[in-house]
Simulated assay, not measured.
Amino acid sequence: MDLADRAVGFLLSFISLSIFAYYTFWVIILSFVDSDHFIHSYFLPQEFAIIIPVFAGVGLLSLLCMFIGYVMLKSKKKSA
């Protein structure tokens, strides 16, 4: 395996684990902490814990559908 591939894989793993840890702490742990505690200033309001993943999922699904449609149209033109 090339060193650049290994570095990219490590970076992607680190970013994914960081996002997972942040989201887990935000959703699960902060619900048990008092709302006037200073740690709440580092996180968005709780309603964004649902809004952000929903919009990300809709955007990802839209991009996937557009890609599949593009590939289908391109393959249809090629066979005709």
Results as ranks from 00 to 15, higher is better:
Met1Asp: 02
Met1Lys: 07
Met1Arg: 06
Asp2Gln: 08
Ala7Ile: 09
Gly9Pro: 01
Phe10Leu: 14
Leu11Ile: 12
Leu12Met: 08
Leu12Trp: 04
Leu12Glu: 02
Ser13Arg: 11
Ser13Thr: 08
Ser13Leu: 14
Phe14Ala: 15
Phe14Thr: 15
Phe14Val: 11
Ile15Thr: 06
Ile15Asn: 00
Ser16Asn: 11
Leu17Thr: 08
Leu17Asn: 14
Phe20Leu: 15
Ala21Asn: 05
Tyr22Ala: 12
Tyr22Arg: 05
Tyr23Cys: 02
Tyr23Leu: 03
Tyr23Val: 14
Tyr23Glu: 03
Thr24His: 10
Phe25Lys: 00
Trp26Tyr: 15
Trp26Pro: 04
Ile28Arg: 13
Ile29Glu: 03
Ile29Asn: 06
Leu30Lys: 01
Leu30Thr: 03
Leu30Glu: 04
Ser31Trp: 03
Ser31His: 09
Asp34Thr: 08
Asp34Leu: 07
His37Met: 05
His37Tyr: 14
His37Ala: 14
His37Ile: 05
Ile39Ala: 06
Ile39Met: 12
Ile39Tyr: 06
Ile39Val: 15
Phe43Tyr: 15
Leu44Ala: 08
Leu44His: 07
Pro45Val: 10
Pro45Asn: 06
Pro45Met: 06
Gln46Gly: 08
Gln46Glu: 09
Gln46Phe: 13
Glu47Cys: 06
Glu47Asp: 13
Phe48His: 11
Phe48Thr: 01
Phe48Val: 02
Ile51Asp: 07
Ile51Phe: 07
Ile52Gly: 06
Pro53Gly: 08
Pro53Cys: 09
Pro53Phe: 03
Val54Tyr: 09
Val54Asp: 03
Phe55Met: 09
Ala56Leu: 10
Gly57Arg: 00
Gly57Cys: 12
Val58Asp: 06
Val58Thr: 11
Val58Trp: 08
Gly59Tyr: 09
Leu60Asn: 07
Leu60Ser: 12
Leu60Lys: 02
Leu60Tyr: 13
Leu60Phe: 12
Leu60Asp: 10
Leu61Glu: 00
Cys65Asn: 00
Ile68Arg: 01
Ile68His: 01
Ile68Asn: 00
Gly69Glu: 00
Met72Phe: 03
Met72His: 02
Leu73His: 09
Leu73Asp: 09
Lys74Ser: 15
Lys74Glu: 14
Lys78Ser: 13
Ala80Gly: 12
Ala80Thr: 12
Ala80Gln: 11
Ala80Ser: 11
